[in-house]
C-alpha cells in the first residue's frame, strides 16, 4: 500500500471523517496544552519578574539569557538556589520511585494472580492507597515521619527495636527516603492493577508448555511472564517517569505545609521551580527551567520509543 500511495490531498480527503473525529480533541489540546505551552516557552525568553509582571508577554526580551544562566552560569540565581541539586535528587527520586513502584506492583500482582478465596476483597483493599489524594498523602506522612511523636519512629524504635535512636526523617539526609517511600506507597496499587490485567491476558498454554519443557518457576517468570508483560510495564515505566519527575504535591505538603525549603535532599525540580516562580517572582527563569525539563523528558520519551514502542503497539496497549 505504501508503495503506491495516492497524493496526500486525496488521502486526506478520503479520511475526512477521521479528521472530524479528532477535531474536538485537537481543539481542546490546542487550547489547554499548546497555547499555554507556547506562552510558557515564550516566557522563558523574557525577563519576567515582579517589576515586569504586569506587562507579562511584553516584558523585556533577553534571548537565551535564562537558559545560559541555568546551564552555564554557576553563579546565577537559579543555580545557587539549588537547581542542580534538585535535578540530581529528582532523577534519583524518579528512578527509584518508578522502579520500586513497578517492582512492588509486579510482586503483588503475581501474588494476587493465583486463585484464592477473597481475592477480589484483597485486591480492592490493596488498591486503597491509590485513591488517597497526593496532598493528603503528604500531610499524613508528614505526621507519621515526626521524630519524637511520629508513629514510624515509634514502631521502629519502641516496638521493633530496629533503630537504637529515633532519627530525624524530615530534616537532613533522610528526607530523600521520607519522600520516596510515601510516593511508592501511593503509586504501586495502580501498577499492580495494570499488571494484573496484563497477567490475565497471558494464556496458560505458555506455562503448560514451559512446564513440560522442564522450566522452573524463575525461568517461567523470566522468559514468559516478563516479556509478555512488557507492553504493560513499559507503559508504566514511561508514565511513571513522567509522573514522578513532575512530582510536587507530596513534597510540598510534607515539610511544614508548603512553608520553606525541604532541604537539599528533599527539594525536587518542581518545588524548586515553584519557589523560583511564585515565591521569588522569577517567572522567566522558572519557565526556562520548565522548558529544559520538558526537553529532557521528550528526550527520555524518544529513548523509550526506541526501545519499547514496537512492543507496546504490537501488544495490547
Amino acid at each position: 500500500m505504501k508503495t503506491a500511495a495516492p497524493p496526500l490531498l486525496a488521502q486526506m480527503r478520503r479520511h475526512k471523517h477521521a479528521y472530524a473525529f479528532i477535531l474536538p480533541t485537537l481543539c481542546a489540546m490546542f487550547l489547554i496544552h499548546f497555547v499555554p505551552m507556547l506562552q510558557g516557552i515564550y516566557m522563558s525568553f523574557l525577563r519576567l519578574n515582579q517589576i515586569t509582571l504586569r506587562q507579562y508577554l511584553g516584558a523585556p526580551f533577553i534571548g537565551l539569557r535564562n537558559y545560559v544562566d541555568i546551564l552555564f552560569n554557576p553563579q546565577s540565581l537559579v543555580r545557587i538556589s539549588g537547581l542542580g541539586q534538585a535535578a540530581k535528587v529528582t532523577l534519583i527520586y524518579a528512578f527509584v520511585v518508578t522502579l520500586a513502584t513497578i517492582a512492588l506492583g509486579l510482586g503483588m500482582a503475581l501474588l494476587l494472580h493465583r486463585e484464592f478465596k477473597g481475592r477480589t476483597v484483597a485486591r480492592t483493599l490493596f488498591f486503597l492507597p491509590w485513591i488517597i489524594p497526593q496532598f493528603v498523602v503528604g500531610l499524613l506522612w508528614g505526621f507519621m515521619w515526626q521524630k519524637n511523636e511520629g508513629i514510624i519512629n515509634f514502631v521502629l524504635h519502641d516496638c521493633l527495636h530496629l533503630l537504637s535512636d529515633k532519627p530525624f526523617w524530615l530534616i537532613g539526609n533522610n528526607t530523600l527516603w521520607a519522600i520516596i517511600i510515601p510516593t511508592v506507597w501511593r503509586g504501586w496499587p495502580f501498577a499492580m492493577i495494570m499488571l494484573l490485567a496484563g497477567l490475565q491476558q497471558i494464556s496458560d498454554e505458555y506455562y503448560q508448555a514451559a512446564k513440560i519443557d522442564g522450566a522452573n518457576a524463575w525461568q517461567r517468570f523470566w522468559h514468559i511472564t516478563l516479556p509478555l508483560l512488557k507492553p504493560v510495564w513499559a507503559t508504566l515505566l514511561l508514565f511513571g517517569m513522567i509522573f514522578n519527575v513532575y512530582s510536587f504535591n507530596i513534597v510540598y505538603m510534607m515539610f511544614g505545609l508548603g512553608a520553606g525549603y525541604p532541604g537539599p535532599w528533599g527539594d525536587l525540580m518542581m518545588t524548586n521551580i515553584f519557589r523560583a516562580s511564585f515565591g521569588a517572582y522569577r517567572f522567566g527563569a522558572g519557565a526556562a527551567a520548565s522548558v529544559l525539563l520538558m526537553l529532557f523528558m521528550i528526550g527520555m520519551v524518544l529513548v523509550w520509543n526506541h526501545y519499547f514502542k514496537k512492543d507496546v503497539t504490537a501488544g495490547n496497549l
Binding site: N49, Q50, I51, S81, G82, P167, F168, I171, G172, N173, N174, A259, G260, Y261, G263, P264, R275, A276, G279, A280, Y281, R282
Partner: peptide, 27 residues
C-alpha cells in the same frame, strides 16, 4: 522594597539550612 519579598524564599532556605545543620542530620 521589592527585593525583600523576592528574597524571602532564599532567606528562608538559608536559615532553614542553618537549623538543619544544627539538628545534626547531615552525617
Amino acid at each position: 522594597v521589592s527585593a525583600i519579598g523576592a528574597a524571602e524564599p532564599a532567606l528562608m532556605r538559608h536559615f532553614g539550612n542553618l537549623w538543619a545543620q544544627v539538628s545534626g542530620t547531615f552525617g
